[in-house]
Design a protein around this nucleic acid. Sequence first.
DNA 1: CGATTGGTTGAAAGTCGTCAACGGAGGTGG
DNA 2: CCACCTCCGTTGACGACTTTCAACCAATCG
Lengths: 247, 247
Amino acid sequence: MIHMEPALPCAACPLRPLPDFKPVTPTELASIYDAKVGQRLCAAGATILAEGQVATRVYTLLKGWAFRFKTLEDGRRQILNFLLPGDLLGLQGELHAALPHGVEALTPVNLCAFGSDALPRFFSRHPSIALDITWLSAHEERLVDDVVLTVGRRTAMERVAALLVHLYKRAASAGLIETSGIQLPLTQMHIADALGLSVVHTNRVLQRLRKGGFIRLEDQRLSIGDLQAMRRVGRYWEEPAPRRPLL
Amino acid sequence: MIHMEPALPCAACPLRPLPDFKPVTPTELASIYDAKVGQRLCAAGATILAEGQVATRVYTLLKGWAFRFKTLEDGRRQILNFLLPGDLLGLQGELHAALPHGVEALTPVNLCAFGSDALPRFFSRHPSIALDITWLSAHEERLVDDVVLTVGRRTAMERVAALLVHLYKRAASAGLIETSGIQLPLTQMHIADALGLSVVHTNRVLQRLRKGGFIRLEDQRLSIGDLQAMRRVGRYWEEPAPRRPLL
DNA sequence: CGATTGGTTGAAAGTCGTCAACGGAGGTGG
DNA sequence: CCACCTCCGTTGACGACTTTCAACCAATCG
């Protein structure tokens, strides 16, 4: 289900006021709004970008959760990382070439769309925005680097713990924290596919974390009693991130 | 062992003539050379950039092999990807902040160094170069995405086969192909750390590939008899890459 | 109400890791 | 020139973390 909607003025963007995002100058804001060609809505579970598709747009995730993934021809799927509000998508592949990965919505999703000419325009006329885009790209690579470490060298228990802490913190940064936890719109299959595990084993590990009192997770709501304890379980310590740019 | 040497003129760069690299305009070439502050030599096995170190430079790998890695505090190490001539390094972390990963030389390595002001200067004055930098960054993310798929969803046999094919092709692109194969400056420990496997198991898989007649690998020389067969073993098919920019 | 999706649990099998030991090659110092 | 040491590759035995196969249940849905 794809809709195009009238563009929300960037000046009224609900994300910008969040403490995690870097302030922009009015000039930048105007240029960004100028490049925006519309918004797009996708239903939960919808394919936002198909693996192998030729992309002509770049998007910013305005609302909702999504994930990037790759599949092997026999169906094995690996989730590369999760996308939350503020994340850019479509940049990883080059425009006008087949996308090396797919993107799927986990919740109903709202995207800001930019035309394919936006990028070169930013680069030639708005160097500061171009630098921000590059920063976002490098930032995502850092996340994927972490995934490699997790999947390659952490045990199943460590992987699950690290992922939950990671998502918890990110959701919090995106302003998605609620009383006693966050909404975690993932099935156990998503967790398994993100961690290189089977669903069954993921389930068992989750049980252990629940029974150990580390997490409460039911009905898509996650709360973590003791974040430090969970970090220890997952051997997971992230570096503090500076305020991030928002396209 | 760190030496700074007089800078090789970019116009005389041995890499640029290779068919894999995108041509540059004389103006671009001049600007790049202008930003170059020197060269750096590292011995095989040397740490080029330490994990957690604050970097103040960006480098282009001019000659030799290296790899990026992360470690868990208990010593488990994961190699994120390998660096070959033409690759950029130091961009993934933000300048003037702790590097989230280390970089180590596999062979004697020759680097072109750029000062920390080079990036902002490119962005503000040479949009085309800035775009190239972003392309290189996105390209590396695609490589890491592939690593995630490999480590998360391929079997040990598939992982080894896919990695060998990948490195074989990259070495060929970098002009490192020789009669009957390439020089592969890795120990089995490197392969294991890149694939999330133990050294022992890596060894056994390598034996199977040798005995199956798929590869010849001895004394750091790798040759692959039937590339297509190896691709099938590794379920590994890459998309053709366009000519890449070289900073 | 049958079908589908997501979660859960048990049992069995297997891939892969750990522990240990050995051999060859290269490097160093006496 | 030869001990001695370290690095790297190799192999066997054993153990275990995970996967696969199966079945069952609850909730949702058209």
